[in-house]
Design a protein around this nucleic acid. Structure first.
Lengths: 350, 350
DNA sequence: TTGTATTTTTTACATGCGTAAATAAAGGAG
DNA sequence: CTCCTTTATTTACGCATGTAAAAAATACAA
């Protein structure tokens, strides 16, 4: 900790003996002032405690360097790892990453969007809630600054919005193919009123099953919890539902392909509680469970979860690259849509 | 979405027909203008798209309403749930919660602290990295605004910093007592160079074991991963270490009390991979595993994890209350230190 | 040495809004 | 209807910095 407490650049300028604008230029690019001046400032800064005001530095500036990130839910490790990847890559590009969680609530999502607009953020990277998102707020945002959807999309595709996500058709195909090849045909387990991914994956599942000449079977309950937060508690939802089914002896010898890993974790837990035989050897009867997403803790489940892993780093990198392109570029290019392949992760559960 | 695009309050004032300062007062408190004027403004706002500039509104204001939250690590669900609790409670008190993750890196932590100083945040709520934290940066922060440590503390207690945490002595006592009562005495499994909690818990463990007249036994490896991010990957660290031990037949019939739940999850996974008998019935030989923290997914492990659950909501609520007190109050009161009890959560693993 | 071209630095204004002080309007009593 | 009190609105200034334009300093050649 240094000695003198300096609060404004004005104070600093008299303390060091250069004009305030010169300091301003130095902070934005030390090479934009004469080397002797830069050295003088550098030495002066070592004697004092000075931190430029965040708001003032961003008030009258063409680019704030802020990238706002909005995710639906913090306690889903998929989003946590996605966010970490975005933060790390964004940091490398000298962006200031600010994050808001919508807590599964569309009103909070809309508020977060407005907050980033009000900050003149360079761009917004958002994993939208989906069905329930406030489309008007997102449209307003897209009309004012670059918006990149990541991982999930809105039902009605917005113009002027870029998209980075996983190729659900590819990912579902490889997991369906694997499951069909190694045992009974999978039943697709989903949740209603989610985002674009759940719909896309279900459609891809149905299509691929028909391609195999098999009858698609979708397990989905229309009844949803009332509260937003519970609506996104996949694992507990799946556990409760399957616990009931298993008690009645249903689905105990089937292969369940879950729309995401958290659902699969809930299913797994229900299955182990009911002492069901998981991933039976050839010929024997038992249940198999597969997920989708590549949840960070899937390796630590017992049995470890067979899934298709999304490439979080690729998604994050692509999103930041799109932001850079929009910020640098003329901004008149068409909205881009970038899909990444997922990789099959065969473990113990299927 | 509305019609007219309005960018500044100035534009809005001519559009509605009241002066700009009147609008400013209306936004800060609609009741501070005449009802007829308020109604006029309200109607006018429905015709336009206007979002006040975030920076400008916080520039020349006594209180910014911003509470900065800094957590070490996003992909630890304990911190994720802590953060969610803080955000929700903070929101109820009309604070603007901004979050930064230090990604386990003390330089990023220091940068986050400086960022919130530069924003004139009303307060900082931080779960410090601990040993590796930049003390100077935190001291500087504490000299400028209220700082509340949550969950973990620094080795050297800073003056002027409030603390909200779990009563480690109480939590360790109840889990040690339970384990001693129901089977072999626990071995304490920890990681070196963590935060204050690991030291406190170890000390509490040693003390309680001696109180029971038992020999304390601590399992700890001094070798740590080089990279910050890996240093905080508890589950993989624990898995690798215990996998090796189990291969050599060590600890396969002991009771392991882990300093946190993620370590326990790693241990559990190693144990199930080695087909060890977990939580043996009375008399039989086998391993028991207990954690500490109340990790959200501990119910979904197989076997489900026996642990002591920290009260995340209580911690978050107390932290926000301290912030409110510091902001409202004269601010001259002594630093407070508030500890919460944890509750024993007996499940399948011990 | 002087004049010109090329940096650097400074002066002056801008950013969008909060807020104290000054002014105007409304309300009520006589 | 007039005057005074109370409340509401406006004028004027401030916040901490960025940045274009003007002024000064430097560099270099003749």
């Amino acid at each position: 900790m240094k000695r003198v407490r300096i609060n404004t650049m004005e104070e600093l300028s008299v303390a060091i003996g250069v004009s305030r604008p010169t300091l301003s230029r130095y902070f934005n690019d030390p090479k934009s002032v004469r080397p002797s001046t830069a050295e003088k400032i550098r030495l002066g800064l070592q004697q004092v405690d000075y931190i430029p005001n965040f708001f003032a530095t961003r008030m009258n500036r063409e680019s704030t360097g802020i990238v706002g990130v909005i995710i639906p839910y913090l306690h889903d490790l998929f989003f946590a790892s996605l966010l970490e990847a975005i933060e790390k890559i964004g940091l490398q590009h000298d962006f200031t990453i600010l994050t808001q969680s919508s807590h599964g609530d569309p009103r909070l999502e809309a508020r977060a969007v407005e907050r980033f607009i009000s900050m003149n953020a360079d761009a917004i990277v958002i994993s939208p809630l989906g069905m329930d998102s406030d489309v008007a707020a997102l449209e307003l945002a897209a009309s004012k600054l670059p918006v990149v959807f990541i991982d999930s999309n809105l039902p009605e595709h917005l113009p002027n919005v870029d998209f980075v996500g996983t190729d659900n058709r590819q990912s579902i195909n490889i997991i369906v193919d694997y499951l069909c090849r190694t045992g009974t045909a999978p039943i697709f387990f989903s949740m209603p009123r989610l985002n674009s991914n759940s719909q896309e994956r279900e459609a891809a599942y149905v299509e691929r099953m028909q391609w195999h000449g098999l009858e698609p079977q979708v397990l989905i309950h229309e009844k949803l919890p009332e509260r937003w937060s519970e609506r996104w508690s996949f694992e507990s939802y799946a556990y409760q539902l399957m616990d009931e089914y298993f008690s009645r002896g249903r689905y105990t010898q089937d292969t369940l392909l879950c729309v995401n890993d958290l659902l699969a974790i809930g299913v797994l837990r229900a299955a182990t509680r009911h002492h069901l035989i998981i991933k039976p050897s050839a010929g024997a009867a038992g249940i198999r469970v597969a997920g989708h997403g590549g949840y960070p803790l899937s390796d630590y489940m017992t049995p470890s979860l067979t899934t298709v892993a999304q490439d979080v780093n690729a998604l994050a990198g692509a999103a930041i690259n799109m932001v850079i392109e929009r910020v640098r570029g003329a901004g008149s290019s068409l909205p881009s849509r970038q899909l990444f392949e997922a990789s099959l992760k065969i473990q113990e559960s299927a």
